[in-house]
């Protein structure tokens, strides 16, 4: 198993690699453990407060564990008009999570994004790196099933 130390020590002890380290930690653990933040702080000799500021600023970083599958529903103008909120409601019906939340079993997280550049196929939904276009509530159910969700119904 890869440890925090291994991830951090891939980089030189310089401040400018901080964000890269945080991104790698996020990728490995699906969140930034407290331990990691403290270790990086020591490694690049940067105050913990600055790292905490960074970790809470970027949407790609999270201090709470994220789900194995991250569902992103686009809520840009085009998707919004094409009822992206209905998809979000449907996801709540199935998984009982709202925007920014993660299912108790740690399988799914729900986020919204402001535009995925795929307005032609609005409304758009992405699970990890897979895109789904012209999504309907019925499709949401199918997609979640693909990833082993919906058991809790």
């Amino acid at each position: 198993m890869i440890e925090i130390k291994d991830i951090i020590e891939k980089y030189p002890r310089e401040k400018r690699y901080t964000l890269a380290m945080l991104q790698d930690v996020q990728k490995q653990f699906n969140y930034i453990p407290r331990q990691a933040l403290m270790m990086i702080s020591e490694y690049v000799d940067t105050p913990l407060s600055s790292l905490y500021s960074m970790a809470t600023f970027y949407k790609a970083l999270s201090l709470k564990p994220k789900g194995k599958y991250i569902i992103k529903v686009c809520d840009g103008t085009a998707c919004h008009i094409r009822s992206s909120m209905v998809l979000i409601d449907e996801i709540y019906n199935i998984l009982k999570i709202r925007i920014g939340e993660t299912t108790e079993d740690g399988m799914f997280s729900l986020e919204t994004v402001n535009c995925l550049g795929s307005c032609a196929i609005a409304p758009v939904m992405v699970v990890n790196d897979k895109y789904y276009g012209k999504v309907t509530p019925a499709m949401v159910r199918e997609i979640i099933k693909e990833y082993g969700g919906e058991k809790n119904e």
């Binding site: 933040l37 407060s49 600055s50 905490y52």
Partner: peptide, 18 residues
């Protein structure tokens, strides 16, 4: 360096880590 700005947008604030 005990404090910093935390979060962003409408939830932004000044605080200590955690």
């Amino acid at each position: 360096s005990a404090i910093s700005t935390v979060n962003r947008g409408v939830t932004k604030k000044v605080s200590t880590p955690y």
